[in-house]
């Protein structure tokens, strides 16, 4: 067993396990909070009210059109400048300026814009026939939304939303590049950078960090794939061709 633990690669995997939880924390907080906000934004963009529609459009455009890196800096420095007048007197400066609070906050603002665009695209492609059927059945607006529009939107948006969630997970890297690192609260990139500065072994440490990202991304794809299967369980399955081993090394 000792030879395994002495292996530099295995040691790196163990060292980076705790930092990985910080990336997971940021993603796990931001995804459930961003989802309803994104849905509201998508409905706002689709709304008949011109003011609401314009505001949602502007929000989505601004947050999709600018880098998350700048957004982090902007919100952090803005929060800092309000510190003396607002947070300090209220006694919440420790919480507001803490990366574990501010990080997810900015991530939620950012991811909801991207997800809203995806949901909006799906809202637009909800089959017209099903909505007409709902109206013909005499459903109220509310019933029509909950039993036809919303389930269809989620189902249509799910594959693209899965991608966005993986990108959000990747974006958690930026939190500690922009916000202060407190004590030992380091995420994967911080820790990999710290290990790199000790022995300059760039290939080992960054590869292990990359491995963590790839494995967790694959786990996200797997879980979201299961959800997609659940969402489309009533639909006719596409005929999946049987797998046969027929390698063509030279086509």
């Amino acid at each position: 067993m000792d030879w395994l633990l002495d292996n530099a690669f295995v040691q790196d995997i163990i060292t980076l396990a705790r930092p990985a939880t910080f990336n997971l924390y940021f993603a796990l907080i931001s995804i459930p909070l961003g989802f309803p906000f994104a849905m509201l934004l998508a409905l706002g963009k689709n709304s008949g009210n011109r003011l609401i529609s314009w505001l949602s459009r502007a929000y989505i455009y601004a947050f999709r059109g600018s880098p998350l890196f700048i957004q982090f800096f902007m919100f952090y420095s803005f929060a800092l400048s309000l510190n003396r007048t607002l947070w300090k007197p209220m006694g919440i400066d420790d919480i507001v300026l803490h990366p574990l609070f501010l990080g997810p906050l900015v991530l939620v603002l950012n991811t909801s814009a991207y997800a809203a665009e995806i949901f909006y695209g799906a809202l637009k492609t909800v089959p017209k026939g099903e909505i007409e059927a709902a109206r013909a059945m005499g459903m109220s607006k509310w019933q029509e939304f909950w039993s036809v529009t919303w389930p269809n939107t989620i189902r249509l948006a799910w594959p693209a939303y899965t991608n966005e969630v993986v990108f959000l997970f990747h974006a958690t890297v930026l939190v500690y590049f922009t916000l202060p690192v407190i004590n030992e609260q380091k995420d994967l990139m911080n820790k990999a950078g710290e290990l790199f500065e000790k022995d300059y072994n760039v290939f080992l440490h960054f590869s292990v960090a990359a491995l963590y990202f790839i494995v967790i991304s694959m786990m996200i794809f797997f879980v979201f794939g299961l959800v997609h299967k659940y969402l489309t369980r009533h639909l006719k399955k596409e005929e999946t061709p049987k797998f046969r081993f027929n390698p063509k090394y030279m086509r």
Partner: peptide, 15 residues
Amino acid sequence: RGVPDVLFFIFFPLA
């Protein structure tokens, strides 16, 4: 594509 762009962005010049 499976790795954050920032990671690669820092890794490549160093490597």
